[in-house]
């Protein structure tokens, strides 16, 4: 997993609530046995029509959002299926940071395991960011160490993140490797467990 300390990138606004993981990556693309190559299928049914041609009315297809790496979305982003293919698709497409008023629990866990920083900001702040990104080519800077988001126009916001997730993301750690350092405790637990 790539560590993420600071990030500076173009913002893509997706002003929808309750975006579920079936929308992030539809089920027909879940049959691959690799972790890679899912970006081409991101938001597939919104990005492409029945003939697999790009839909011009879906904003991610617009040239101004090419290269976007920060996704701003509505409340309860990532609800529904536990498929980790959703963060794999987002990351493979190029998104490193997602900002929303709230995230579904399983999706949130899945992002942190893949080096994506999911940031919760209040509705009014998210509305401001959505608005900026709809009218401008809008760049945000995210500093995970300081837990701050800011732009070049004077917007600044602090965010909360559990200390454990912050540590894992900052250092790009292999969680299994860490857990295996507790192998003795697990063995001891198993021996007394019934």
């Amino acid at each position: 997993m790539e560590p993420i300390k600071t990030h500076n990138g173009l913002v893509y606004p997706l002003p929808k609530r309750n975006v579920d993981t079936d929308q992030i990556i539809p089920k027909q693309f879940l049959k691959r046995i690799e972790r890679s190559g899912f970006g081409q299928f991101l938001f597939y049914n919104w990005r492409f029509d029945e003939k697999d041609q790009p839909r011009q009315d879906f904003t991610l297809n617009q040239p101004k959002y090419k290269g976007a790496s920060v996704l701003i979305a509505g409340d309860n982003f990532g609800c529904g299926s536990s498929r980790e293919h959703a963060p794999w698709a987002l990351l493979d497409y190029g998104f490193k940071v997602i900002i929303a008023p709230s995230f579904a629990d399983i999706f949130y866990n899945n992002t942190t395991k893949n080096g994506i920083l999911a940031i919760k900001l209040s509705e009014d702040k998210v509305d401001y960011l959505l608005n900026q990104a709809e009218i401008n080519s809008y760049i945000l800077t995210i500093d995970l160490e300081k837990q701050k988001v800011h732009d070049e126009l004077g917007f600044e916001a602090d965010f909360d993140i559990p200390a454990y997730h912050k540590h894992m993301l900052l250092n790009g750690l292999d969680e299994i490797g860490i857990t295996l350092t507790y192998a003795d405790q697990i063995t001891q637990f198993e021996q007394t467990y019934n």
Binding site: S82, I106, N110, K113, N114, E175
Partner: peptide, 10 residues
């Protein structure tokens, strides 16, 4: 509860 694939591996 449901988990993602990284957690399955874990």
């Amino acid at each position: 509860f449901g988990i993602g694939t990284s957690e399955v591996e874990h």
